[in-house]
C-alpha cells in the first residue's frame, strides 16, 4: 500500500523530511514505525518512547490499523500554549 508519511518538529529536522509518499507492507502504525526504524541512521529518532502519532489528522495509538492512502504523522509531545 502507499501512504503519506508526515514528520514534525525535531523528527522533521533530524530526518530532513517533512512529507514523503512511501510504499509499505504493514498493517498497523507500530509496524510502520518498525519498518522506518529499520532504515537505520537518523530514523532512530522515531524510537522516542513519547512519540505521538496521527492517522488522517486524528490522534491515534501505535496499535491503530493503516489503510492504503492514509496520511500518517509522527511527532514529539506537543508544546503549545
Amino acid at each position: 500500500m502507499i501512504i503519506e508519511l508526515c514528520l514534525f518538529a525535531r523528527y522533521r529536522e533530524a530526518l530532513g523530511i517533512e512529507r514523503e509518499r512511501i510504499e509499505v507492507d504493514v498493517t498497523s502504525i507500530a509496524d510502520l514505525r518498525d519498518a522506518l526504524l529499520g532504515r537505520g541512521d537518523n530514523w532512530a529518532v522515531l524510537a522516542d518512547p513519547k512519540l505521538c502519532c496521527a492517522r488522517n489528522q486524528t490522534l491515534c495509538s501505535l496499535k491503530s490499523a493503516i489503510a492504503d492512502g492514509d496520511e500518517i504523522a509522527f511527532f514529539p509531545q506537543m508544546t503549545g500554549g
Binding site: R10, E13, A54, L59, Q77, M78, T79, G80, G81
Partner: peptide, 28 residues
C-alpha cells in the same frame, strides 16, 4: 483551554539560545 492547548493540540516550540544560537525543541 490553556491546559489542553499545551498538551493536546499539535504545536511545537523551538527556542534559539542567545549566547550559542543553539536551537532547542522544548519538552513538556
Amino acid at each position: 483551554l490553556m491546559d489542553q492547548l499545551k498538551s493536546q493540540v499539535p504545536l511545537w516550540k523551538r527556542e534559539t539560545q542567545l549566547d550559542s544560537a543553539q536551537r532547542v525543541w522544548l519538552i513538556p
